[in-house]
Amino acid sequence: MTEPQDKSRRKFVAGAAVAGAGLGVAALAPGLHLIEVAGAAPQAPRAAGEPAPSTVRWGMLIDTTKCATGCDKCVTACHTENGINETVQDVRQGSQWIRKIDLKDPKNGRTHSLPMMCQHCEKPPCVDVCPTGASMKRADGIVLVDRHICIGCRYCMMACPYKARSFVHQPLTAQNPEVPRGLGCVESCTFCVHRVDKGLQPACVEACPERAMLFGDLNDPTSEIAKRLAQEPATQVRADLKLNVGVRYKGI
């Protein structure tokens, strides 16, 4: 995002040991996760000046048989990555980009645990209802809020069947420079769009100790996620609404 164009400037920024923006992450991330996580980086970083391609549809497969009850490492990783660090008196007024839900089937007592976040619908109700067009879907299927034109009406929150959107109830000061967020606007999971554009995985996927989350291009038949979806049964939450969500769950 902030990658400088000319060399002199690049040298200056690096020299000043600036940790923010692309440079810092590039320096921190090497190897560690990219080797371990199946499928490694979903793709090469997009070249500067290239728009998000409409040939790609980002999606996620969550294996609830692996997701551990009581584990919330994905939630913590999300909060760290996206600078969700404000303290709130009332948890219901705090931002919930991703939350853990525990399910119990009353018929047979089977339990599941799973992370719930923006499902990045192909036909997102939040985008339909937004009066200004702030709620939007990028060409590669990532659903975002354009905070520059969000007026904070919360109609998208009324419309989201997954309760995936949060309204920022208080002034913020400690944002991650790459993840702007602030008072009076609605926000939700971005699939860590700033990381995806650099060829990295979303923070939650990287953080999952059980490797229960898989991120990739649903449109690419050679991708790990597409292959697994072709072989294993996976469900869409609230499939009755026919929103064709980008996040699929296995085992519920």
């Binding site: 000043a16 923010g20 913590t76 600078g83 660090n85 931002s95 944002q175 420079p177």
Partner: peptide, 20 residues
Amino acid sequence: WDCHQPKAGFKHAGAVGVKP
């Protein structure tokens, strides 16, 4: 600045996560 971080190279140092 309601949303963007005005400080260069900002990294949040404190506790992480929304605490109930």
